[in-house]
């Protein structure tokens, strides 16, 4: 970091980087929440505000409960399914799709992303466009399917193909 950067206020692109968003998402959300300020210079409070506006959550981290599994990819997907259930992303509740990957390293993100896409195609998960970007939702009648994936009791064979 250059010395001068220490004295500069936060830019839109820096808000985006810190939240793993695209700057255009930040601009759209701020626009919807009243508009951009006269000078595009921000502080930490603005980052927190955008985090809230965007519904950004980091599910994978040091304390994230993960499901133990002999196959790492399957373990990741089972953990992601359990996270959706734990956070009750069911019925009217939705979450940003990328909340399911945020905090994972790129290779693991790839596995979870493929599984999510597969579950959307299989209509276990529903994708909903929102001002925050793509959201995910589990219909009440699909909770059992997701539960079967999470506890490993009934993983659809088509999903197994993703890590076999």
């Amino acid at each position: 970091m250059a010395t001068l950067d220490l004295f500069e206020k936060i830019r839109v692109s820096q808000i985006a980087s810190s939240l793993d968003l695209h700057p255009f998402e930040v601009a759209r959300l701020m626009g919807q929440a009243g508009g951009l300020p006269f000078t595009l210079a921000f502080d930490q409070n603005d980052i927190d505000r955008v985090r809230e506006l965007a519904g950004v959550e980091t599910w994978w981290g040091g304390n994230a409960p993960t499901v133990e599994d002999d196959i790492p990819g399957r373990g990741l997907v089972r953990s992601a399914a359990q996270m959706l259930l734990d956070r009750e992303v069911v019925g009217g509740n939705t979450t940003r799709a990328d909340n399911l990957f945020r905090g994972l390293d790129p290779a693991d993100q790839f596995v979870v992303r493929r599984a999510v896409n597969h579950l959307i195609r299989e209509e276990v998960l529903k994708s909903i466009p929102t001002s925050q970007g793509l959201h995910l939702q589990v219909d009440a009648d699909k909770v059992k399917v997701l539960q079967g994936i999470a506890d490993g009791s009934k993983i659809p064979s088509s999903l197994e193909e993703l890590w076999s």
């Binding site: 839109v12 255009f24 601009a27 001002s131």
Partner: peptide
């Protein structure tokens, strides 16, 4: 993040606000 970026942010912000005002806040972009 140059003038072109800032112009893009301003226009996108206006589009976002406009969508909210016409009841299409969740329209995909």
């Amino acid at each position: 993040e140059d003038l072109a970026s800032l112009i893009a942010y301003r226009v996108i912000s206006c589009v976002g606000k406009m969508l909210a005002e016409v009841g299409a806040a969740d329209a995909p972009l």
